[in-house]
Design a protein around this nucleic acid. Sequence first.
DNA 1: CAACCTGTTCGCCA
DNA 2: ATGGCGAACAGGTT
Length: 264
Amino acid sequence: MPELAEVEWNRRQWNPGLHDQVTAVALHAEKRLFRGTVTSLLRRRLTGQKLVSSEARGKRMLFRFTGDGWLGLHLGMTGSLRVEKAEFDAGKHDHLVLRQAGRSLVFRDARQFGRIQFHNGAKAPDWWREEVPEIVSKSFDAKLVESFLKRHGKAPIKAVLLLQNGFSGIGNWMADEILWRAGILPRRPAGKLSKAERAAIFSETKFVAHESLSRIGRKGGDVPKTWLMHERWNQKGRCPKHGIPLRRATIGGRTTAWCAKCQR
DNA sequence: CAACCTGTTCGCCA
DNA sequence: ATGGCGAACAGGTT
């Protein structure tokens, strides 16, 4: 699930727990998810504290607690956040559960490509403060995209769109969606795109990010049927514009789908 | 049983 | 020093 808008959706799943005290912490300390994190500290510093606020940046989330506790979450490939009843029994892949009087806040991640970090201090942790502009912010502008594409000029544009220090929050399906809308073949080297094509990458990135984020709260929640996204999952996917079968190949290490007619 | 998967990180090479 | 690429990670699904 987890790309930009889905991350934001998951972040909100814990909103029912805002301003409530964490009465107990249950976690699977030996799991790879906690690599680099002192779980005993996490457990000790969150127990008895209140969840104050949360924020998402790209694919990362930060939950703030009283007592200077900061919980960083990344959903990886299969992570999700949800709320369960207070007395709910954690399943095999429910690697972190924050118990509150009225509910349990649950982090599940079967494949464990995600990550759980904890920091105790007055200021937000270093790993959160490193600045990569959010796509929906003003500082993500055409100039920034220009220089980023130039810097990675030899790599296929598809691979460049997946680099989180430039396109924060873009994942596999969003990258394909952007390229389809921009009319650009995923294998084209980023440095060989025309000025107009670079401008299209910029504006379609903004468009896809804004559109998908704006739909989270609404009923249905999903992006329109006319988006490539709905077609690219299965082998029989077809271009929403032309109805012809999508081409597919591994590019930038990931399965990539495109329309040979739309994209040049 | 084999292939595939919405992500990052590491080691190797240019 | 920087950039590009493929493998590895872990487990479920097709």
